[in-house]
Each structure stands twice: as C-alpha cells, then as structure tokens.
Design a protein around this nucleic acid. Structure first.
Lengths: 145, 145
DNA sequence: CCATATTTGTAGCATATGCTACATTTTTCC
DNA sequence: GGAAAAATGTAGCATATGCTACAAATATGG
C-alpha cells in the first residue's frame, strides 16, 4: 500500500513540477530583460550601447558585455567590438512578446487599484511568471473596466 | 540642459531600480521556497528530510544539502548530519509569510477566473514579486467576490 | 545479525551573473 | 592634432545553484 510520503510516488509532485517551471522561467528572464532594454534604447535613442544598457539594468558594463556575448551566441543579438548592439529577428520578436506581457501586467495591476509606480516595479518580476491563461484573464479584466 | 540619455542622469533610471529590486527578490526566493517546503513537510509528515525536500523541489539531494547548509548559516534552519531538518523561529516566520503570500496569490488568480491548476503554477513565481500594496489589492479583490 | 536498500555527504564539474581592477579603443573637446 | 574623458574588453574574483559519481552512514527486512 502506497505510503503518503512523496518519495513513494512515481510521478513528481506538482510542487516539483512548478518549481522546475519557475527555474526555467528564471533562465529565460535575463534574456527577455536584455532584449526588452535593448529595444527600448533603440526606440528612444536609435542605438543601444553597453554603457546605456548597464545604466538601464543597474549593473556594470562588464556584466552587460558578458551577457550580450551570451545572447549573441543564442542568436538574439548581433554586435561587434566597439559597436552598437542590434537585435536579430528572434531577439526583436522576443522583445515584443516580453514588452506586450510587461504592458499587460502593468495595465492589469493599475486596473485593480495598484499605483502606477508600484505596478511598474512589480510587473518587472511578475511578467516572467504569468502563463497564457493568466495573461488572458488579465486582459479580460482590463477590457471589462 | 539635461540630455535625454540615461547616462547623463544623476539618479538611476526607474528601470535600473526595478531591475535591482527584482534581483534582490530572486536572491530571497530560494530561501523562501525552501523554508516553505520544509514547513509543509513537517506539517504533513512530522519531519523534513533531504530526500523528501529534493522531491518536493525537483532537484537532487546534493542541491538540497548544499542549500540547507546555506540556510543554516543564515539562521533559518537547524540540522545536524544524518538528522531531520528543523526551522528556526526566523525560518518559521519566513515560511509563514511566504505561505500567506502564496495562498493570497492563488486565491486572487482563481477569483479572476484562472483555473486552480494554473493558479498554483503561476503563483510559484508571482508570489516573490508582489509588493505589500499589490498584495493588499489582491486581498481586497478576493474579499469583494 | 547481516545483506541490501536508502539516505546523506563530499568532490568536482557546469552555467549564470554580479563585481573590481586594469588595459585598450574610441570619442570628445580644446 | 593631441590630451582627456568615456566606453569597451579582459582577467579574475565572488556566490548561487544545478548536476554526476562515488563513498559513508543509516534504515530496513529477512
């Protein structure tokens, strides 16, 4: 007869599945933040430089350079030494998706009465953890206001 | 006259402040997940063992052992070699706070029409990024249903 | 009581991401 | 045109957190 202990289950408990999913979301999070920040800088200034990205993201230029190199390996950005940073088609798509999610979360939080300032701050983290279903519920709610 | 470039500002841009806050939240996230999982195991089985934590969290027992050692250094848990894992008063308080936030986020998502299954999955990540103000808005919304 | 199974612990590997220090390159300004 | 400032790049440090492999300790069952 099966013991109530999680260790006796064949199927991982939901908590493990959820935790793993959250970690996978974290693994994508940095890339999304970077491509979104790059897209913002390009839209606002025509170009994205490491020094500006560093300021937007609150890290040193070293961290930016390292991470941009990784994103280039992953095909999300394109850059050359001492040149601006550009988004690839993949990177642009990811940036648009991330921004859309970001904006939806902000709109939703404001719709339930959260101040714009706090909504923007909280959205930064929340945006990476909302599933399609939750996002759709947020959109329905905002549309119904 | 101030330049529009972020690099000319004396005050870091909001984006940098938000990003930094999100990273700080991530730094706390693992500790909260662990103490919450430990509290759950103790409540359900009377004790928390590394092997059970590993299954709950979806990682190997090695990762659990390492992280529990860190949490012990941080005063959140107490354990000895080959013994069960216990929460300190600090750890217990953190677990309760984390669980309360977790439960509020789930209740709220369900209240806006998200299925329980998806609500639980999304709450896992969202719970770490909601400020007090946002949580209060969630609670008001749930109470008004 | 002992063999086997399970759990725990260590070693050493990996990636990610943060930093300081310093060197090199580019840009700016006089 | 050249000095100074700013930006970029590398080296090497750090922590966190994931893993496999293997060894040691404990628990279980016959």
């Amino acid at each position: 007869m099966p013991s109530p202990r999680p260790s006796s289950r064949k199927r991982p408990p939901d908590s493990a599945v959820h935790q793993r999913r959250t970690r996978e979301q974290h693994a994508q999070e940095r890339a999304q933040d970077y491509v979104e920040a790059i897209a913002d800088l390009i839209a606002e200034h025509g170009e994205a430089r490491a020094t500006d990205l560093a300021k937007s993201l609150g890290v040193t230029h070293v961290t930016v350079i390292r991470t941009v190199q990784r994103l280039q390996r992953e095909g999300l950005v394109k850059t050359q030494p001492y040149r601006s940073i550009f988004l690839t088609d993949s990177g642009r798509r990811l940036a648009m998706q991330a921004k859309a999610r970001h904006d939806t979360v902000i709109a939703f939080l404001e719709a339930i009465g959260v101040s714009p300032k706090v909504a923007r701050a909280d959205a930064e983290g929340i945006e990476h953890h909302v599933s399609r279903e939750t996002l759709a519920a947020f959109e329905r709610f905002v549309a119904a206001q």
